[in-house]
Design a protein around this nucleic acid. Structure first.
Length: 721
RNA sequence: GGGCGGAUAGCUCAGUGGCAAGAGCACCUGCCUUACACGCAGGGGGUCGCAGGUUCAAGUCCUGCUCCGCCCACCA
């Protein structure tokens, strides 16, 4: 006899027990079994920058649900877990910790700083794994990976060297986004363009003969110190006479030419553009058309360089103020307008980025992008919902080369060594001890590390063993589905597809299921720093993991952001209680059930029996159909509706008549069989969403069934009835 | 400047051209009926953003517009 069930479900009595049981029973482990169909999901590796938020809870519940569902259907289902070192993000977290002690990373030095970062990363890793387990997630822990572990580092090196050998990675001086605070180059994606309130300063560059010269307008007066020309549109009649002439650059007393260039928009500002080739991408393009000099006036530290005359050494924004007042004193400032414009900020530390010409490593994107486009054009990768394909396409069609080197410490150091004698880079799979050309020893490795997304791009195959030709790759690759939010389609999804097409010759995954972001009840972004974040663990403590999972799965929409509301979790907790009490009722009424299982297909079923069995079948079909289409909320709702409105409200109520009538023992036996059959089917179907309570209730039901064998739980590929 | 998404009950949202538009929460009225008050039975509440059009039939398809949100882009 099972112990008596209390009248309310208490998740705390259940959850840890079953997670330990799953580990003991090896439930998460995926067996490479060629007699079964492969199914594989690789986790979007959480950053080891902190703990998991609601978005992770959502994303990982979906993956756990899909994995459990496939596992129950008999697939060789692998959900491969891991974490991401998250280069710049983690480095920033550690730098902020040091800042509180009044230190910078340079006070520690590279080695000590990395030691500290490993400590922080390990700590966060353990928190993250604990959180996934509390959530009930069952990825195959024996295959867990980290983007900085040995195997993945080998994969990174293999990818880098191969691309270099193919001429797809090159080093060059190009204009990039520079964060003076992080003191590193950034990729275009790592810059957030924010609509900042600024000013539009109109200033006059007079003619050498003392004439009026030309009026230019700028939002960044400090760059004027590096001007080497003024540009106007070739067809702009206002300035026709000036083209080919020169003007005097104020404050620097430099004579600079007026050039004509199609890139100038005559409608904007004064129609005359000050040209600062070293600090603006458009200006650089103009400079290249006219062979203009580049004068670097802003350094990597965000301070004015020695080329800045009297402003040398000033912070760039201090210089801006000083220059404006200096121009004003000289009567050359002819107007200030309020001006809202997009200003690039470092996505990690919010500092205003500075466009600089810098020597960096780049990935040439043209060929890779073509491969990436082919993947969707040939239907190798399918986005769900389909509309994201267009977003993906448009990004790839307009892509620029990718700056992959970072002047940071936390990450994969670039496998390139400088030979001072030959003045060339040696890029190699093995750490070279001497120059391959001249044999000189004492080569120095580039101190730079790779953009963190370089390693994540390889994730779907590096985690399965690439560049080794492993059995795992052969069996599980391409993986089945990638589950992620839309905000990293460019950063990550696109790069995985390109890399996979390039290195593996096939797609990394057949489907990409894109979901939205979890927002607060009033639609704000959830953010720890804004205090709008909700900690999934607190909800699990209060309502249980199953309630949280169920609520999240009910809220999923296709690529639409979802608003989190605690009411949903309360509702899901109530649903758990309903389920608990349904099972309590059924087990109480099964105590005197016959020892022999009744074959319902040979029984004289009542209308109610036939109705609930048919509804039950319909529900199972709906689940399968909707999950196949990634309509997770629809599947979840179908369960809820069937369990509560059909089974509990109607069948269980109707069953009471038969159960309590001593005159009709045959009827009662059939009813008992139907109750047991439908309830066990419900528990199985619900298990991928609510694994803890269903496992508990299943075992209670099974115990109660005595000698009658129920199909093994949670395997559902056996006969349901 | 380009692109995308949304606008359906007080709130959050389902709704895959066709029975009288749905759910959860909230609200109202009864019920502690021995599985469950985290519950049961019942109820009120919507000109489906606006204007046209296609169709026997439109919340659903087409066109235009309004408002909200997001993404991309080197307009100084």
């Amino acid at each position: 006899m099972p112990e008596k069930m209390p009248p309310a479900y208490d998740h705390e009595q259940v959850e840890d027990k079953w997670y330990d049981y799953w580990l003991k029973e090896d439930v998460p482990s995926a067996e490479l079994d060629r007699d079964r169909e492969p199914f594989c999901i690789v986790i979007p590796p959480p950053n080891v920058t902190g703990s998991l938020h609601m978005g992770h809870a959502l994303d990982n519940t979906i993956q756990d649900l899909l994995t459990r569902w496939k596992r129950m259907q008999g697939y060789a289902a692998l959900w491969l877990p891991g974490t991401d070192h998250a280069g710049i993000a983690t480095q920033n977290v550690v730098e902020k910790m040091l800042e509180e002690e009044g230190k910078t990373r340079h006070d520690l030095g590279r080695e000590k700083f990395l030691e500290k970062t490993w400590e922080v990363a390990d700590e966060h890793h353990d928190v993250i794994i604990g959180q996934l387990q509390r959530l009930g997630c069952t990825p195959d822990w024996s295959r867990e990976r980290f983007t900085l572990d040995e195997g993945l580092s080998d994969a990174v090196r293999e990818a880098f060297v191969t691309l270099y050998e193919e001429g797809l990675i090159y080093r060059g001086a190009r204009m990039i986004n520079w964060c003076p605070r992080c003191s590193t180059g950034l990729s275009d994606l790592e810059v957030e363009h924010m609509d900042d309130a600024g000013h539009f300063w109109h200033m006059r560059y007079p003619s050498p003969d003392g004439g009026p010269g030309v009026m230019v307008a700028t939002t960044r007066p400090e760059t004027m110190l590096g001007d080497t020309a003024v540009a106007v549109h070739p067809d702009d009649e206002r300035y026709a006479d000036l083209i080919g002439e020169t003007v005097i650059l104020p404050l620097m007393d430099r004579e600079i030419p007026v050039v004509a260039d199609e890139l100038v928009d005559p409608e904007f500002g004064t129609g005359a553009v000050k040209v600062t080739p070293a600090h603006d991408p458009t200006d650089l393009a103009i400079a290249q058309n006219h062979n203009l000099d580049r004068v670097v006036v802003i350094g990597e530290d965000g301070k004015m360089t020695d080329e800045s005359g009297q402003f040398a050494g000033m912070d760039r924004f201090e210089a801006r103020r000083e220059i404006v007042s200096a121009l004003e004193e000289q009567g050359l400032l002819e107007g200030i307008e309020e001006h809202h414009h997009k200003v690039g900020h470092c996505s990690r530390c919010d500092t205003i980025v500075e466009p600089l010409i810098s020597e960096q490593w780049f990935v040439a994107m043209e060929k890779l992008a073509a491969d990436g486009l082919r993947a969707v054009d040939d239907g190798l990768v399918r986005f769900v919902p389909e509309r994201w394909t267009k977003v993906y396409r448009e990004w790839l069609e307009n892509i620029e080369d990718w700056c992959i080197s970072r002047q940071l410490w936390w990450g994969h150091q670039i496998p390139a060594w400088w030979c001072t004698r030959c003045n060339q880079w040696i890029v190699s799979r093995e750490d070279p001890t001497e120059c391959l050309s001249c044999g000189v020893t004492g080569l120095v490795q580039s101190p730079d590390v790779l953009d963190t997304w370089f390693s994540s791009g390889l994730w779907p195959f590096s985690t399965l063993g690439w560049p080794e030709e492993t059995e795992e790759l052969d069996f599980w690759f391409p993986t089945s589905v990638l589950v992620t939010a839309y905000d990293i389609i460019f950063f990550w999804v696109a790069r995985m597809i390109m890399d996979s097409m390039h290195f593996m010759g096939e797609q990394p995954f057949d489907n990409v299921f894109i979901h939205g972001l979890v927002r607060t009840e009033d639609g704000q972004k959830m953010s720890k720093s804004l205090g709008t974040g909700v900690d999934p663990l607190e909800l699990i403590d209060e309502y249980g993991a199953d309630a949280l999972r169920f609520a999240l799965m009910q809220m999923i929409t296709h690529g639409q952001d979802l608003r989190y509301s605690e009411d949903r979790v309360v509702g899901a907790r109530n649903f758990c209680n309903k389920l608990w009490n349904m099972t309590r009722f059924v087990t109480m009424n099964l105590e005197d059930a016959p020892d022999e299982k009744i074959d319902l297909s040979q029984s004289d079923l009542s209308l109610a029996d036939r109705w609930i069995l048919s509804r039950h079948h319909r529900m199972l079909e709906t689940i399968d159909r909707e999950l196949t289409r990634y309509n997770i909320a629809q599947a979840t709702d179908a369960l809820y509706e069937h369990i509560w409105s059909e089974f509990a409200d109607w069948y269980v109520e109707l069953a009471k008549g038969d159960l309590y009538d001593p005159e009709t023992p045959d009827r009662k036996a059939i009813t008992q069989e139907v109750l047991r059959t439908v309830l066990s089917g419900i528990l199985r179907a619900l298990h991928p969403i609510m694994p803890f309570i269903t496992e508990e209730l299943w075992h209670r039901l099974k115990e109660d069934a005595g000698s009658i064998a129920l199909a093994e739980f949670p395997m559902a590929d056996e006969e349901m009835f």
